[in-house]
Simulated assay, not measured.
Amino acid sequence: MNSPIDCSKVRFAIQAVREAAQLVRQVQRELVTAAISKDDKSPVTVADFAAQAIVSKRLLEAFPEMGFVGEESSEVLRTPAGQETLEQITHFVRRVEPTATPEEVCAWIDRGAGEATEEFWTLDPVDGTKGFLRGDQYAVALAFIRDGQVRVGALGCPELGEGITPNKGGLGTVVVSRRESGCFASSLADENSDWKKLAVSDESDISAARMLRSVEKAHTDTGGIGELVTALGILADPVGMDSQAKYAVLAAGGGEINLRLLSPSRLEYREKIWDQAAGSICVQEAGGRVSDLDGKPLDFSHGRILATNRGVLATNGHLHEAVLAGLKTIGA
């Protein structure tokens, strides 16, 4: 496997994300069918758990002394109601770990149920549930954190193609960054493909800014974003996309603003670290800027949530202060 950065953690992150993302894609292709009902989340549940199990197993092999914070816990899988789902998860995990038992799968998943330590890895096994179920954008997001700062981040985006553009059913893209070493993208499916260094857009005209907006409306304050667009005089069409794939597109210059406003009904909400860690370093290392809605850097030293940060703002850097000023104008 080639790597754009000579670092054991970068090489591990690339390989782990590639393996997990391709496993998740197998689950999607086999379990997500046209006949599936809108409220049936079982395929993404299987994908989430299978990806976390295999990344946890790989971490145990490569960095057994390091902590691991994952999104999932196997508690429900150990109940009678969860047995069928556990059998499905184990079936897919055995694609890459042929001797895995249900008990081992649960144990691997539960390694991610602890709290953050001085240095640890954090994983969102399938970021973008609705995108996954629609056959649209989703991502496997893995990051290494030390002393409250993201040091390495990797995104596996099965439905993004070369140039970080939507490409359903294509080879997919893996994006990786290390602090002070840049951001790079390559083929998800081809380990021998070349790496391309990514750079954010140089757009400095706020009216031309392309805002990367979630397709899933529940994930942000859509009304507030509409107010912000009006206040800033943004004329460019937004780019609709779920998951941390938005960070990859922003890092590659495919948009200028990625925003998570707090819902008026959930002003106390704080972001989970796995939802922002990998993507945020990719944007920063591509030349962009990431902060909370008050302009403060994201602080990953408070356990499983960004306890001292309100929302998230990622931009190409050139437009960051303008957006922060606009947020104050609308009282966000």
Rank of each mutant, 00 (worst) to 15 (best):
171 L>H: 10
194 D>P: 11
118 E>P: 07
247 Y>Q: 06
157 C>T: 04
235 L>G: 00
46 V>Y: 12
88 Q>N: 08
63 F>H: 00
54 I>H: 00
214 S>D: 10
204 S>G: 02
5 I>M: 12
31 L>Q: 05
306 L>D: 05
321 E>V: 08
208 A>H: 13
208 A>Q: 14
103 E>S: 14
148 G>Q: 12
315 T>P: 09
48 D>A: 08
147 D>A: 15
256 E>K: 02
10 V>K: 07
307 A>S: 11
11 R>Y: 00
208 A>M: 13
237 D>I: 02
28 Q>F: 01
212 L>H: 06
13 A>F: 14
80 P>G: 03
6 D>G: 03
4 P>S: 10
52 Q>N: 04
198 L>M: 13
293 L>N: 00
189 A>G: 02
35 A>P: 08
316 N>E: 01
308 T>Q: 13
202 D>Q: 14
313 L>V: 10
53 A>R: 03
200 V>W: 11
224 G>R: 00
94 R>Y: 10
317 G>E: 15
324 L>K: 04
222 T>S: 06
248 A>F: 15
83 Q>L: 14
64 P>N: 02
137 Q>W: 04
163 G>R: 08
255 G>A: 05
163 G>T: 07
121 W>H: 01
5 I>A: 02
307 A>V: 01
325 A>E: 15
200 V>A: 11
40 D>F: 13
160 L>Q: 05
322 A>N: 04
38 K>Q: 07
314 A>M: 15
33 T>F: 02
58 R>Y: 04
317 G>N: 13
99 T>E: 15
81 A>R: 14
81 A>V: 14
117 T>K: 07
275 D>C: 11
4 P>L: 14
291 S>F: 09
280 S>C: 12
219 H>F: 15
50 A>M: 14
171 L>M: 13
319 L>S: 05
222 T>P: 05
200 V>I: 15
141 A>Y: 11
211 M>L: 15
52 Q>Y: 06
16 A>W: 09
323 V>H: 03
152 V>D: 01
302 H>A: 03
18 R>L: 09
292 D>C: 12
12 F>Y: 08
15 Q>M: 09
316 N>S: 07
11 R>T: 06
61 E>I: 14
59 L>T: 00
316 N>W: 01
143 A>M: 06
176 V>R: 01
203 E>Y: 01
128 G>H: 06
117 T>G: 07
267 L>Y: 01
67 G>L: 13
68 F>Q: 01
100 A>N: 01
314 A>H: 03
57 K>P: 04
212 L>F: 12
236 A>G: 05
278 A>C: 08
296 K>V: 08
5 I>C: 07
104 E>V: 05
86 L>Q: 00
90 T>N: 10
26 Q>V: 15
284 Q>A: 06
177 S>H: 04
291 S>M: 05
37 S>P: 08
2 N>L: 15
82 G>T: 06
258 N>S: 14
20 A>G: 13
